[in-house]
Design a binder for these strands. Structure first.
Length: 274
DNA sequence: AAGAGATGCAACCGCTATGGC
DNA sequence: CGCCATAGCGGTTGCATCTCT
């Protein structure tokens, strides 16, 4: 896995881009496409490294980029997606047309993180930061990565429940407005609940050294969820590229916005109650 | 008005994944 | 199978601008 030589070593320009450089880059890409980023600077007459050109194009010059302040809907969406995906800015950006991962990352680090902290919510876990060692929320996994896994799994279950609900025309009520207990009991008795019970059993048989871990997930092409859920027919990957994941995510995002991500906590509590 | 500190954003750095040879 | 080139990603930095005193 060789790495491209640093721009310094090649005497290439660094720092802010000038309008002239921007023009050269845009002109070249409009005429020829970017092709190989490595060879682009030379061909376009730029004293920049390919990496810098690619970044400038993807984060600033691309014609489909939507500049300007984020709307409250976009911010809400970013928060919801972050609760599910964690710091996977590219995956989050893919759900916000015209927004770049860099822009979302900056938005998160400068605005949303503080906003959540101000609201008493831990921006990493999306749990109330005031929760102490005795509350039910502390039954959630302790590390942020595993908590995200649990939240993601909860979100998946919610989405699966909605899919199942749609397909079978069963009128499983939304947890909003109806009793949570009714909803969860129905869900627990459904196929989804069965799937999850299997998961729970499987997890209990996993030795501590084999606990689900983000790093392991990353290094493995198979997903952690898939590993313990052989019965699941939906994609177990926590990547959001698969179409089934996309539809599940969409279902998740369809969740009433005034409820934000609170259902995750609700579902998380239920998950641990089981 | 001026200086200090805070904030926001563009760009860079270093790492990993992937594909070709 | 291993090496290399490239693309893409997330974390971090640096600087311009804003706000406060």
């Amino acid at each position: 896995m060789g790495r491209a030589p640093c721009c310094d070593k090649k005497g290439l320009k660094k720092g802010p881009w000038t309008p002239d450089e921007d023009e050269k880059l845009v002109d070249y890409i409009n005429k020829n496409g970017h092709g190989s980023w490595r060879s682009l600077p030379k061909l376009a007459g730029l004293l920049r490294c390919g990496k810098s050109c690619r970044l400038r194009w993807t984060n600033y010059l691309r014609p489909d980029i939507r500049r300007g302040p984020f709307t409250s809907e976009e911010e809400k969406l970013v928060i919801q997606l972050h609760a599910i995906l964690g710091n996977r800015w590219a995956a989050i950006a893919s759900q916000l047309p015209g927004r770049t991962d860099n822009e979302i990352k900056n938005l998160w680090n400068t605005h949303l993180k503080k906003q959540l902290l101000h609201m008493g919510i831990d921006p990493q876990t999306h749990e109330p930061s005031s929760s102490t060692s005795n509350g039910p929320q502390n039954r959630l996994p302790s590390s942020p990565s595993t908590r995200h896994m649990a939240q993601w799994e909860s979100a998946r279950l919610e989405a699966e429940a909605r899919l199942s609900c749609r397909e079978s025309h069963l009128s499983i009520p939304s947890p909003v407005g109806k009793s949570d207990g009714d909803f969860f009991i129905q869900l627990w008795n459904s196929e989804v609940g069965e799937t999850f019970r299997n998961l729970d059993k499987a997890e209990k048989t996993v030795s501590p050294s084999n606990q689900i871990d983000d790093a392991e997930c990353k290094s493995s092409s198979k997903s952690c969820v898939e590993d313990v859920r052989p019965g699941s027919d939906s994609c177990g990957s926590n990547e959001m590229e698969d179409s089934s994941d996309q539809s599940e995510l969409q279902l998740l995002l369809d969740f009433p916005s005034d409820n934000d991500v609170s259902f995750l906590d609700c579902f998380g509590s239920w998950l641990h109650f089981c």
